[in-house]
Structure formats: C-alpha cells, structure tokens
Design a protein around this nucleic acid. Structure first.
Length: 916
RNA sequence: GCAGGGGUGACGGAGCGGCCAAACGUGCUAGCUUGAGGGGCUAGUGGUUUAGUACCUACGCGAGUUCGAAUCUCGUCCCCUGCACCA
C-alpha cells in the first residue's frame, strides 16, 4: 500500500468512527465508566512526533478500555495560559527571523501565513486547529465536543471558583518574592522573553558590611562568608565609579553600576560619587575579627557583579592571591581558614602555581578558582574560628546566619547566569514583588492528604511513586499570579493573572460539563454555580438546571488515568494531586497517573536549533498514523526515552504489508477448515499473548506489548507461512485484529471488515483468551520441528552439499525415563543406582551409562521434553515441509529403526540426524 | 553537595539465579530476487572447534554467597537527570 491508499483507508474509518459517535460518550448508568485525560497541549507551534507519545499512550489505553466494555471518555482542550503565546505573537509581529525560519523550515509554514499570526488569538486559533487536525489524523479517540481553551470566559469562571475554594481553605497567602525583571518593559521576564532564550537563574548572595572610619560601610559580596577569617584586604576596581548611598538607615559605599542593578530590590538612595582612590585610602573593619584591613585596586573586580566590591582572601581565592601578586604583595601574610588535604596552608597559592596562572587577567585564573572552590566545598574543614573542625560547607551557612543576626551581613538576590538581556534590550535585574500571591503547598496537613491520595493511587510506572513522594515533601510556597499573560484573572486582585501551572490542576473536572454549558451564561456561573455542580453544596444545589451538570460530573469523576511526560511529576502532576485533595472528597481523588519518556530523533534530542524536529502531521502523511502510533509508543519502556528512526518506521510498515497480504488471503477463505498442528501452534501462541496482553495493556507496558503482539506475531507468521502449504488464518486474524486494534486502529478496522467481522473493531470486544486453545505439547512439538529444521540446515552447510537423504531418529522412551531420573537425582552414581531399579531402563543397561553421563552434565538445566510418541507425531506432521525444504527423501523413525550407528545418539528433545 | 536513574555485542536496548554468546529492533556481511531514489527474501555477525556439538573469553572494576551469577551481597570507579516558579 502506498501513502495515498493508506490515507484513503484512514479517512474512511475516521469518518465512520465519527459518524457512529463512538468517542462521544454520555453518562450511561448501565455501563461502568473510565475517564482518561492527557495534559492538554500548548498551541504556540505545531506538534511534533514527540508530543504524540503521551497522547498515543493515552489513546491506546483508552481504546483498550473501550474494548473491555467500559464507557470511556478521552477529552482534549488547549492550554493558552501565560506569556509564551504572547511572546511568540510579538516575535512574529516583529518579524523575528529565527522564529520565521523555524516555522518555514521545520513546520513548513510559509511566511505569508506566519504574517497572519501576529495576534495571540489568531496564533492560538491557527495552531490549535492544526494540532486538533493532527490528533484526528492520528486516530485519537477524543470527544471533541468538550474542547475548550483556558482563556474561555466560562473556564475562567471555573478557575476563579477553584481559587476561591483555595482561599477559603487558607491555602492562599501573600508575601514578598524576588523575580527576574526588565526595567525597560517594567515586567517579569522568563526564558522566552530573553535574548537567546536564557532562563535567568536567581541566586542568593551574602553581602558583608565592613565599617570604615567615616560613617559609611563598604559592602562586599561573597559566596564564601566562612573565609571572612582570612581577609587581608578589600578590592575595588580603580576604573569603576563608586557612590555613597543610603540603604535603610545606613550609608554604604557601592559601585555605581551595581547600585543601579540592585536598586529595585534594595531601595537605595544615591548620595553622591566617591572616587576609587578615596576608597583605597580607607581602612575597613572586619566584622568577625575586628581587624582593620586596607583597600587595594584589582582589575578582576566587576562593577556589575554583586556590589562591585569584594573581600580578599588570598589563601583560598586564586584571584585574590593573583591580584596581590600582581601588586607585588605576594609576601603578605595569608591567614589560613580552611584545611584542604593535599594542599599547604594557602591552597589558592598552590593551585595558581600548579596551573602556572600568569596574572589575574589570565583565563586560567577561572580554572584555578573553580578547582579550589569545588574542592574546599566538598572536602574542606574549618581550621579556625567558632566552627573549627566542621566542614567548610556547613560553616558557611552558619557564619552567614550569625553575621546576619548581628546586622553585619544581609542577602541580596542576583542573576547567577548574568548578564541576561531582555528581548527589548533591557538589562535584566532582580526585583522584589511586595504583594505576590502564593499557594502554600508547605502546609503539613495538606501534604499529608496528598500522600494519602498517592497511597490510594496507581502510579505507572510503579517506580515513579518515589518521585511524587519526594515532590510532595519538597513543594513549598509557590507564586500563583503573574502581571501579564493570557488566562484567568486572579479573583482577589483583578490586575493579576493566574499563572500557567496553577490553572491546570483541576481542569479535568471541566471536561465533564464543558459541552453542556451553552445554555448557561457566564454571568450565572458564580461561586454557587460550581459549588452546586462540583461539590453538590450551596444555594444552587437543588437548582434543576444544574442537575444534569452535576450528574455528568459525578458519572465521569474521578479521573481514572492521567497521562503526561515524566518531567511533569515535579510540578504539574503533583500540583494536580494537591489541588484535588484540597477541594474534592476522597472518592473523587485521582486514581492513576501514567508518565512516559520523550521521543528522540535518530538518537538525538529533537530541538529547533538542530532542525531535527519531525512534525506529527508530516510523519503521518509519510508513514500513516498506525506506523507512527506504533513507532512512537512501542520503541522503549514507558519511562525511558524512545528513539524514532525512519528505518524502524520503515520496518514497521513492511511488516504491516506482510501481514496485510496474509489477511487478504485469509479473507478469501470461504469456509472454516479444521486446524492442523501448525495452525494449533499458532493459535496456542496467540491465546497466550491475549492472556498476557491484558495485563500489559492494564499497566501501559507498550514496549512489551509491541514485542508480544506485533514483532513476535510477525515472526510466528513467517515461520507458519513457510511451514504450511495452505495457510488457515481466518480465525487467527479475527482475534489478532482486535488484539492490535488499540495500537493500530486503522489497520485493525480494515482487517476486521476484510475478514467479515461484524460491527466496528473500534467499539468491539477484546478477544477472549481461550484456555482450550493453549496446548503446550503442540508448542513444544513445533519447537522441535523448528530445531530439527535448523540442525539439518546447519549440518548441510558444514557438509557443503545438498543431502540425498535425511533420516531423523527419535529417542526411545527409555531415554526419556533416564532423562527424568537425571533431572531428579542430578548425580551420576545416584542416577545409575535408580536406573538399575527401573523396569523400563533395565533392558538397556549397556547403553545407559553413556547416555546418563551425557545428561548429567546439564543435570541442573534440563528443559521439559516430549515423549517419543509425541516427538514422532510432531516431526511426522512436518514431513511434507521437510521434504520440500531439504529437497530430498526424509525418514522419521524411532531410533531402533535407524541402521546408521549415529541414530543411537538420539536424546529426548534432540533427535539424531543422519544425512547422506 | 542532595535526590533519583544507570553502566550488557557496532548501536538502541532485553534478561534480574540455571534451556544465555545474550530477546526484539537497527547496523554490518554474504547469497538470492530486473527491485532500483532511503527495496524484498534467506543466512551469518566474540574466539576456537564439530555432521546439528563442545569448550574458552565476555555483561564497568574487585571480592564474596552458590553445584551454578549479567542476575544475589559488599566494596569501588564512572556516566546521566533534577534541585523550583519555567510552560
């Protein structure tokens, strides 16, 4: 089948499924329900095959449950909350060449189309329908009636209600919060607002105050307060501008640029300039030791980092030592603070000399600093002071706290990976938001409830459980509003927007009613409205207009299976648990969360910069939905990343073509024929797989399923095709089509109808495991046929010629008896002793020792074997096959009938072969 | 540093106490097939050896438990991911 044929088949069944409405379930009292959801997509670009993994996993699972007779709801919506969509629209409007290039080259979006996407709404509309189309093409069994966007007014009402509930519970609090901020835009910035998509990382840094003779303090920035014991001097950059400024009720001296950067968070009042030369005349008093130290010049000091003033600890900071050496003061006394094994009293000096660093401007200085800092942090022990003998890393915290308590130090927040620039060109700084709203996930009682929910919930894979547990403990206060972005206004401060991770924690409930809200005006959707629908309480609880909504909610809730990529355990999925336990009663808490890994492209992470992104719709066009579904989901264990490669997709396609040709033949088979041994073998294997598949589907073991019900089946069929003259596969495929249908719904449907199946495969029944069709004897027999076939071929190869005649001689039953004696008794003397007592073996005592000796070697690992008669029956069944394969006469006899002495070598499970 | 995961063939990865020189897939090699724009089929793919076999060397490194270990125990080295407000 070529791509257009596949596309035709797919659209045929897609239409049929839609017409029959099998994915649009409504509450049905007669049926048990299953509610499956997957994290809704964020439509700021088209989706690629990586996005397909979670949705396909969820869809396979949903389709499986449907076949098991459940009423299954799998809905979908779109998440548009936050700033990325705004940022994207802005970049398109500004004709950002990077964005346009990605759209053009990767997603095939012409510039003319991009040019229409400059408004957020237009962008959302275009990409969401693009994604929706893709999902339909993939065959996802989604109920699209329930689609909504997270900026829909009715959804906003729901989210505002959720936040009112959180507030009532006392889970919302207000406080200060440091954020990355652009002073030009006067706005918070995150990765997508910055040049080069850098995520600004905030970091606490200690500032220590050194008193001077005047009333001003020199404020020095340090990552290592514990080294304060070893300060020999203070550094300023002679080329930098410094100022006096008022900070709270003190006067400090700080670099001018630093003051500008820190002004927002510190609230400084500039008094006037101070020349660096002036500062260098000062003496600065170490708040810890009381010692007065001089101020020296150094070029390595940056006026933009921290306060633009640093302290000098030459024994432990390579830059400080280098700067002193550059000044010709290397002979200065350098007090040791930290003891480091393998180094002298001045590790910084040792390291500088070891690396042969030339000066403070030598790039090697950075290397030396990193080496010393890492080593001292991990292995260093305090050599002096109050915390002598303790690990340096622990002392650091304690000393910083001590100093802060005394008022000799404070903390500032800096951008660790700075400087970072906003797309508008502004230098990103840290701002402290005064009335930031938080959700307080740190409340112990709430955490306890979340854990209780986890206890009663299934996590797939099971080992993800620990990560949830960890995250539940780790979560603390979390900001829940932002100044800008799409979404829902914060009900207690309408100037703020609810942040993107906070409005997607309870929204699954909205799916249960989303399609029924047309007759309700959002003005009526107040607190009482949702109290009635979701909680069944409040003044509107008895409102007949809301009864249907309430019923729908109660029918579908709780969510039976939530699907997402594993990286969301750390935030979204755990917040999902928290919010559910906060607002809903125990029976409505989540039942199961399934997390999966990513999709790699030919072993590499997909990324825009590498250009190796395969858009989902393009992939479907090329390979057909079923091949993509299968490739994306069955290539690796659920939790690990899977690799998509074209060769694998090709392989899947060609295997499907092979199966297709057999199905076609089976479809022509008018009447059911009786099954021969090979048919029975195949059916026996299939039934085992059906049995195993149930458990595998239940636990979303897609990889294992792929192996069992596809790859294994293909190789079974290959053998079968060779083995039988006239395939008899109708019954086999009727079952198999249903078995594979959750994975490959289109092919399954097509096959099902080709074979004359009744109704739709997509809404049919999961195949029954028929124990009567499982026959271990037949399976072992077929294994034997296969093994003998392989052996004959191998011998033929070694002989280097085609055989004239092949004799296959089956071991006598007395050997079988011996076989079991060896299995039981293991040791040769014991076996011989028992053999002598055995009526079956006694007549063959002259042959027993040799055979026994051979068997005893593997006494601990002898597999089950068939009796002589069964071996004969199995092999004789394959006589025609053998003749055809070997192209000569074939005799299959008990070993006594063999004239050749080699016939006597026969062993149970290992017939003797004589070729001439 | 803390937390989690992992080290197996050319590669992705199975196996988690014995039918294991290692599933399944990919790659590679050979043969066949007029198939020719990421073909199809068959066989092979650690070494030696043999009429289908057997043995040796292999599952990061070292030691131990066991009749038997990739699989269990202990030690050791190395690698990856996350550490927060970002959807």
């Amino acid at each position: 089948m070529d791509a257009s044929q596949i596309a035709a088949i797919e659209s045929k069944w897609r239409k049929k499924w839609a017409d029959e409405g099998i994915y649009e379930p409504d509450p049905d009292a007669k049926k048990e329900k299953r509610f499956v959801t997957a994290a809704f997509p964020y439509p700021n670009s088209p989706q690629h095959i990586g996005h397909g993994r979670t949705y396909t996993t969820a869809d396979v699972y949903a389709r499986y449950l449907r076949l098991r007779g459940y009423s299954v709801l799998f809905p979908m919506g779109f998440h548009v909350t936050g700033t990325p969509i705004l940022a994207m629209a802005k970049r398109i409007a500004a004709k950002d060449p990077d964005v346009l290039k990605v759209f053009r080259d990767i997603y095939g979006i012409p510039d003319e189309l991009s040019a229409t996407l400059t408004e957020p709404k237009a962008l959302v509309s275009h990409f969401s329908s693009e994604i929706e189309e893709g999902m339909k093409e993939m065959g996802y069994s989604i109920d699209w009636r329930r689609k909504f966007y997270s900026f829909d007014p009715k959804f906003n009402c729901f989210i505002q209600w959720q936040f009112r509930k959180l507030k009532e519970l006392g889970y919302l609090i207000k406080g200060e919060y440091p954020i990355a901020w652009c002073p030009l835009d006067k706005n918070a910035v995150s990765a997508h607002d910055t040049r080069g998509d850098v995520d600004p990382e905030l970091e606490d840094v200690t500032v220590i105050k050194f008193a001077t003779q005047g009333n001003a303090h020199l404020v020095v920035t340090t990552y290592r307060p514990e080294t304060l014991y070893g300060v020999t001097n203070i550094w300023v950059n002679p080329k930098a501008e410094y100022v006096k400024a008022q900070y709270r009720n003190e006067t400090i001296i700080i670099a001018k640029k630093a003051a500008e950067i820190l002004n927002l968070q510190m609230g400084l009042k500039i008094i006037g300039p101070v020349a660096a030369e002036e500062i260098m005349k000062m003496k600065a008093k170490n708040p810890l030791t009381g010692e007065e130290v001089p101020v020296f010049p150094a070029s390595f000091v940056s006026e933009e980092i921290g306060t633009g003033i640093v302290m000098s600890v030459p024994a432990h900071a390579p830059y400080d030592y280098l700067a002193l050496r550059d000044l010709g003061k290397a002979d200065m006394k350098m007090p040791q603070v930290v003891e480091l094994k393998g180094y002298g009293p001045a590790p910084a000096k040792d390291e500088v000399e070891k690396l042969k660093v030339k000066s403070q401007d030598d790039p090697l200085a950075e290397q030396a600093t990193e080496n010393i800092y890492t080593k001292e942090a991990h292995e260093g022990v305090m050599a002096v002071g109050k915390y002598k003998g303790e690990k340096a890393i622990a002392a650091k915290e304690k000393i910083a706290q001590d100093l802060a308590r005394e008022g000799s130090a404070f903390t500032i927040v800096t951008i660790a990976n700075g400087p970072v620039y906003c797309r508008c060109g502004g230098h990103v700084v840290v701002n402290i938001l005064k009335d930031q709203w938080f959700i307080d996930y740190g409340i112990p009682a709430w955490k306890a409830k979340a854990k209780q929910c986890l206890d009663g919930m299934r996590t797939v894979p099971d080992k993800a459980r620990d990560e949830y547990l960890y995250t539940i403990d780790w979560l603390k206060t979390r900001p829940c509003t932002r100044a800008a972005g799409l979404g829902t206004r914060f009900p207690f401060d309408e100037s703020k927007m609810i942040e993107a991770l906070s409005d997607s924690t309870l929204y699954m409930a909205f799916y249960t009613i989303a399609h029924m809200l047309k007759e309700h005006d959002e003005k009526d959707m107040d607190e009482a409205f949702f109290d009635a629908v979701i909680l069944g309480t409040g003044p509107k609880a008895q409102d007949p207009k809301l009864k249907k909504l309430r019923e729908s909610f109660l029918y579908w809730y709780p969510c039976d299976s939530r699907h997402s990529a594993g990286d969301l355990i750390r935030n979204h999925l755990t917040l999902y648990i928290f919010n559910h336990v906060a607002i809903l009663d125990t029976p409505l808490w989540p039942r199961q969360i399934v997390t999966n890994g990513f999709v790699l492209m030919d072993g590499m992470k997909m990324s825009k910069s590498m250009g190796n992104i395969l858009p989902l719709r393009k992939a479907v066009k090329e390979y057909g939905a079923d091949v993509i579904r299968f490739s994306v989901v069955s290539g690796a264990d659920l939790a690990s990343d899977t690799d998509f490669s074209r060769t694998v997709a090709e392989g899947t396609r060609s295997r499907l073509a092979f199966i297709g040709s057999l199905v076609e033949a089976a479809a022509k088979q008018k009447t059911a024929r009786l099954h021969g041994r090979a048919d029975k073998w195949l059916l026996s294997r299939l039934n085992r797989k059906i049995n195993a598949a149930k458990a595998l589907y239940e636990s979303c073991q897609m990889r294992q399923l792929g192996l069992e019900i596809f790859y294994d089946v293909v190789s079974d069929l290959k053998w079968y095709e060779k083995r039988t003259e006239s395939p008899n596969l109708h019954a086999f495929f009727m079952k198999w089509a249903m078995l594979i249908s959750p994975f490959m719904p289109y092919h399954a449907e097509e096959y099902w109808h080709m074979l004359g199946g009744k109704g739709m495969a997509a809404s049919g029944k999961f195949p029954e495991y028929d124990e009567k069709e499982v026959d271990a004897q037949v399976e072992m027999g077929e294994e034997l046929v296969r093994a003998v076939h392989g052996d004959v071929e191998k011998i033929g190869q070694l002989l280097g010629k085609k055989p004239q005649k092949v004799g296959i001689y089956v071991a006598s039953d007395w050997k079988h008896g011996l076989y079991h004696l060896v299995r039981e008794h293991k040791l040769l003397p014991k076996v011989m002793q028992e053999a002598a007592k055995d009526a079956l073996l006694r007549p063959h005592m002259k042959d027993v020792p040799k055979a026994a000796a051979q068997l005893v070697k593997n006494a601990h690992s002898l597999p089950d074997v068939l009796h002589e008669k069964e071996e004969l029956a199995a092999l004789r069944d394959a006589l025609g096959f053998y003749k055809k394969e070997f192209g000569c006469e074939v005799a299959i006899e008990p070993e006594e009938k063999g004239a050749h002495p080699r016939a006597k070598n026969a062993m149970p499970g290992k017939p003797a072969i004589v070729m001439s």
